[in-house]
């Protein structure tokens, strides 16, 4: 009895016995593919942050003599673009805007969409119906058209581009959040929590969030690549990033005329977009399985 008593005391004083997130971290580290994807994504982010130190040349400095130099040209390891600017430096600098345009709208939409979806799903009934029908209106437009329409109405510029992409991503994220929350809300542990007399806010915080954020987050990360490509589309139409700023989508579009002359060169920004989106997707897959406690 004395021994059991001390056990209780230790448990009471310990802040949290082997927290949930340390378990997630342990399982994530065991997943080699996810760790590799995480390293690539982390590397890309570091590359974007430290671009001035990493890039060998000025990304805006072009000479017509170097125009469309092939990959492997001396001093220009990845060649030069249609205005003779160093491709490697532009790709490195491009990571800044591309990642920013890919990640930021999804992050903002994740916060707003989750809040809307969880609130609607937990409230249920007519609150849920009205909220979801209003969001359904956005589904009437293809996402590209919607982004263009909003961006066009607001005018060109990076901020307006961000805003339009955020608006485009809120409905799908809210819908996923709503369906996951509706499923969780029907479970008996939520009923048990209601029987404890806890307020709706406390129940959502303590019992709902932990069980719904995982799937919503995984879905949101899969939107990062879509966001980058939509941002590229906006740039192409002169609505998002404007030249001469380096951005992968914009570079892909300006190099498209060179595809018959230097196909490998023209494909490079696409390779970067592919690399980024696949590493984010695999990272989110790894996170999802690490967060699945039933493993």
């Amino acid at each position: 009895m004395a021994v059991a008593q001390t056990d209780i005391e230790t448990l009471a004083t310990a802040d949290k016995p082997r927290g949930y997130w340390s378990g997630v971290g342990r399982r994530f580290l065991k997943d080699k593919v996810a760790v590799a994807a995480g390293c690539v994504a982390g590397g890309l982010i570091l590359m974007a942050i430290f671009a001035p130190w990493v890039a060998p040349q000025d990304p805006f400095d072009g000479t017509m003599i170097r125009r469309l130099s092939p990959i492997g040209t001396e001093g220009y390891p990845l060649g030069a673009d249609e205005l003779g600017r160093d491709m490697l430096s532009r790709l490195i600098y491009g990571a800044r805007l591309s990642l920013f345009m890919g990640v930021t709208p999804v992050l903002i939409a994740f916060v707003i969409g989750s809040a809307i979806g969880i609130a609607a799903g937990y409230a249920g009934g007519w609150v849920n119906s009205i909220t979801m029908r209003v969001l359904d209106v956005f589904y009437a437009f293809p996402s590209v058209l919607l982004a263009i329409a909003i961006s066009g109405a607001l005018g060109a510029g990076i901020l307006n581009g961000l805003l339009s992409l955020t608006v485009v991503f809120i409905p799908p994220i809210a819908r996923v959040a709503e369906s996951v929350t509706t499923a969780v809300r029907k479970l008996e542990y939520i009923e048990a929590a209601r029987a404890s007399g806890a307020s709706a806010f406390t129940i959502v915080r303590a019992h709902v969030l932990g069980n719904v954020l995982g799937p919503i987050f995984v879905y949101a990360t899969s939107l990062i690549s879509v966001s980058m490509i939509l941002a590229a589309g906006l740039s192409f139409l002169g609505l998002g990033v404007s030249p001469p700023n380096p951005e992968w989508g914009l570079m892909l579009n300006t190099l498209r005329n060179a595809i018959y002359v230097q196909p490998w060169l023209a494909a490079l920004p696409g390779v970067m977009i592919f690399l980024t989106s696949i590493s984010f997707n695999m990272l989110s897959d790894g996170l999802r399985s690490a967060m699945d406690i039933k493993q």
Partner: peptide, 23 residues
């Protein structure tokens, strides 16, 4: 209601579904 719930508690049939899987 909050006070009532402190006095009247409930145990459900499904022992698994009535516990938060992440707690």
């Amino acid at each position: 209601l909050k006070e009532f719930r402190r006095h009247v508690q409930m145990v459900f049939q499904d022992s698994y579904a009535s516990l938060n899987p992440r707690m």
